[in-house]
């Protein structure tokens, strides 16, 4: 772990540049008014878009709240559904497994536009269209493949040996999952969770169709701004988007660490 390649500083530099430069450009755009080519920096600045972000008409608080609640809920539900599915795909062998594994990926390949209208019609008939629950359910479609895929690999790497060991030592299936499997897959769940959150937060079309405009998330605000060329406003909301995603990923990592190092849950304090 601690070995250092002579390229390490170079790699770090490249990494930071690739990661931070776009964010920096985004931040500049958020205060730029006019940025003529080929100037290195904008010709005029204004904080107007940041000010309007915190004005009443931006609906910052309800949008943030809805976005986080929705994406957070989708993340938790997806993880809850992915764990048993991934465990089966990762550890069991059964006839038709490769077919199931391929079908699981199908929603990633098929664009939402092809199934959103049909889903809307179905949800209308079920009476869950234009509702939070409906959007939550719809987001599971593009999210589950990622959750299942990542966690399948996590389970494959983990194997079933440790869970068997726990059972043999006297743990019930639930105890074995709680005390052995869960802490060990927690880091994998955290990275999957971060991705799921971002996938859910990025859903525009599904949120649009199934929320009927009642569920307003960051993407719903952001996309019209981008489409209409409101560069500064789009940059402001994009920054917010990144900040929210990053914050959630950090929280997931921390939760995973706490879960994995079960010092406080086990008998020794």
């Amino acid at each position: 772990m601690k070995t250092r390649s002579p390229f390490a500083p170079l790699l770090l530099f490249a990494f930071l540049t690739l990661l931070l430069l776009p964010v920096l450009v985004l931040l500049i755009w958020s205060v730029a008014r006019s940025w003529p080519w080929p100037s290195l920096l904008p010709a005029a600045y204004s904080a107007a878009e940041w000010k309007s972000l915190f004005s009443a008409s931006s609906r910052l608080v309800p949008v943030l709240l809805q976005s986080v609640l929705l994406a957070g809920g989708v993340t938790l539900l997806s993880l809850a559904a992915s764990v048993p599915a991934a465990k089966a795909l990762g550890l069991l062998s059964f006839p038709g497994k490769s077919v199931v594994e391929m079908l699981v990926l199908a929603p990633v390949i098929v664009p939402p536009l092809s199934y959103a209208p049909g889903m809307h019609l179905l949800f209308l008939r079920l009476g869950i269209a234009d509702s939070f629950a409906g959007v939550l359910l719809a987001h599971l479609v593009p999210c589950l493949p990622y959750g299942i895929r990542i966690l399948t690999n996590v389970f494959r790497a983990l194997g079933d040996r440790l869970e068997m060991q726990a059972r043999v030592l006297g743990a019930s299936p639930a105890q074995a999952f709680l005390h052995v499997t869960l802490p060990l897959i927690a880091p994998g769940m955290a990275s999957a969770g971060g991705l799921l959150f971002i996938v859910s937060l990025s859903q525009y079309l599904l949120t649009f169709f199934l929320g009927g405009g009642r569920i307003v998330t960051l993407s719903m605000v952001l996309l019209p701004l981008v489409k209409d060329g409101e560069r500064a406003a789009a940059a402001v909301w994009s920054t917010l988007f990144i900040a929210v995603s990053l914050l959630f990923c950090l929280l997931m990592e921390r939760a995973a660490k706490r879960c994995a190092s079960s010092r406080d849950t086990f008998f020794l304090s």
């Binding site: 030592l169 743990a171 020794l268």
Partner: peptide
């Protein structure tokens, strides 16, 4: 169990 100390491993059962 890699996430538990030696002592915790022994006390697991």
């Amino acid at each position: 169990f890699p996430h538990l100390t030696v002592e915790e491993n022994i006390a697991f059962g």
